[in-house]
């Protein structure tokens, strides 16, 4: 299975710069978990960040600073091992970043009915954008739903089709508010997606607003 629909470069760059709402970071991290092409592109944007750090001006640290830091590492000199939930749980549908937000695998998702057999579960992120898991029964159409800003939809299981094309596992649709679309879940199996919407004008920073794909570096 190969990913055909990717993140835009402006989203990758803003993720690298740390300039996106938490829910958008979550869907970017989840897509990258499934897409080596975007993972590599992110690496190049991180490298730009490293080059910026290297070439920018410096501000002297206080004299006591080094000793403070050495005291801190002496006080706790054991290598810190991160053990998020996702290192203990594997799930066929949910990549690690989602396991952390669900608090477990797919069976731990607390679905709520959204009508027409569609279910949703809103994930706990900061309020400047919303991340939800959607469960869409096979063959069901989601009527065109107004959204006032950016809408990102990442397929985790099954597939859907809309005016933008056919989206399978790992594919992400980046829809701006002017896109009229009516996603229909593929008939062959139920579809599970991660969908992220931002409230209007909630993005901070320059890059997401520009919303034009840069060529990859």
């Amino acid at each position: 299975m190969t990913v055909k629909h990717h993140l835009t470069d402006d989203l990758l760059m803003a993720y690298s710069a740390g300039d996106l709402p938490e829910a958008v970071n979550l869907i970017v991290a989840t897509h990258i978990s499934l897409c080596d092409e975007c993972r590599a592109a992110l690496g190049s944007y991180d490298a730009v960040g490293g080059a910026v750090l290297d070439t920018c001006t410096t501000v002297e640290m206080s004299k006591a600073s080094l000793n403070t830091v050495l005291d801190m590492i002496h006080a706790q000199d054991t290598q810190v091992q991160d053990k998020p939930v996702s290192t203990r749980i594997k799930d066929d549908v949910l990549p690690a970043p989602l396991i952390d937000y669900v608090g477990g695998g797919l069976e731990n998702v607390r679905w709520r009915s959204a009508g027409m057999g569609v279910k949703q579960a809103i994930l706990p992120t900061s309020k400047d954008a919303t991340a939800r898991l959607l469960y869409i029964p096979a063959g069901t159409a989601i009527p065109d739903h107004g959204h006032s800003g950016l809408e990102l939809t990442l397929v985790l299981k099954g597939a859907f089709q809309d005016e933008g094309g056919y989206f399978g596992r790992g594919d992400i649709e980046v829809a701006s508010e002017d896109l009229n679309h009516t996603p229909v879940a593929d008939i062959s199996e139920d579809c599970i997606c991660l969908a992220v919407t931002d409230a209007p004008l909630k993005f901070k920073g320059l890059v997401p607003r520009i919303a034009q794909p840069f060529l990859g570096i």
Partner: peptide, 11 residues
């Protein structure tokens, strides 16, 4: 500054 954690990609 944002008082958020940052979701990181798997693996």
């Amino acid at each position: 500054l944002r008082k958020q954690r940052r979701p990181e990609p798997e693996d």
